[in-house]
Lab assay of single mutants.
Amino acid sequence: TGEEYIAVGDSTAQQVGDLTFKKGEILLVIEKKPDGWWIAKDAKGNEGLVPRTYLEPYS
Rank of each mutant, 00 (worst) to 15 (best):
T1R: 13
T1A: 13
T1K: 13
T1S: 12
T1L: 13
T1H: 13
G2V: 10
G2K: 08
G2Q: 09
G2M: 11
E3I: 10
E4L: 15
E4I: 14
E4S: 12
Y5V: 02
Y5C: 04
Y5A: 02
Y5M: 04
Y5K: 01
Y5E: 00
I6C: 06
A7C: 11
V8W: 05
V8T: 11
V8M: 10
G9L: 15
G9K: 15
G9I: 15
G9Q: 15
G9W: 15
D10A: 07
D10R: 03
D10L: 03
D10V: 04
S11R: 15
T12F: 13
T12W: 12
T12N: 13
T12V: 13
T12P: 13
T12E: 12
A13C: 12
A13T: 10
A13Q: 08
Q14A: 12
Q14K: 12
Q14L: 13
Q15P: 05
Q15R: 15
V16I: 12
V16L: 11
V16Q: 11
V16G: 09
G17M: 06
G17C: 07
G17I: 05
G17T: 07
D18S: 15
D18K: 15
L19E: 00
L19W: 02
T20P: 09
T20A: 11
F21P: 00
F21K: 00
K22Y: 09
K22G: 05
K22C: 09
K22E: 05
K22A: 07
K23D: 03
K23I: 08
K23N: 05
K23Y: 05
K23A: 08
G24N: 05
G24E: 02
G24Y: 04
G24L: 03
G24I: 02
E25Y: 05
E25M: 09
E25I: 03
I26D: 00
I26S: 03
I26E: 01
L27K: 00
L27G: 00
L27I: 07
L27F: 06
L28D: 02
V29A: 02
V29D: 00
V29I: 11
V29G: 00
V29Y: 01
V29N: 00
I30P: 00
I30Y: 07
I30T: 07
I30C: 05
E31K: 11
E31Q: 11
E31H: 12
E31F: 14
E31M: 13
E31L: 14
K32E: 04
K32I: 05
K33L: 11
P34Y: 09
P34N: 11
P34W: 08
P34T: 11
P34H: 10
D35E: 06
D35V: 03
G36K: 03
W37Y: 11
W38V: 04
W38A: 02
I39V: 13
I39K: 08
I39W: 13
I39T: 06
A40L: 05
K41G: 02
K41H: 06
K41Y: 07
D42N: 12
D42R: 02
D42T: 05
D42M: 02
D42H: 02
A43W: 09
A43Y: 09
A43Q: 10
A43P: 07
K44Q: 13
K44R: 13
K44A: 12
K44H: 13
N46E: 07
N46A: 07
N46T: 07
E47D: 04
G48K: 02
G48S: 02
G48R: 02
L49A: 09
L49F: 12
L49N: 08
L49V: 10
V50N: 01
P51M: 13
P51L: 14
P51F: 15
R52N: 13
R52Y: 14
R52L: 09
R52H: 14
R52Q: 13
T53K: 13
T53M: 11
Y54M: 15
Y54W: 09
L55N: 00
L55W: 01
L55K: 02
L55G: 00
L55D: 01
E56Q: 11
E56M: 13
E56A: 12
E56T: 10
E56R: 11
P57I: 07
P57Q: 07
P57V: 08
Y58E: 04
Y58S: 06
Y58M: 10
Y58G: 04
S59D: 12
S59G: 11
S59R: 10
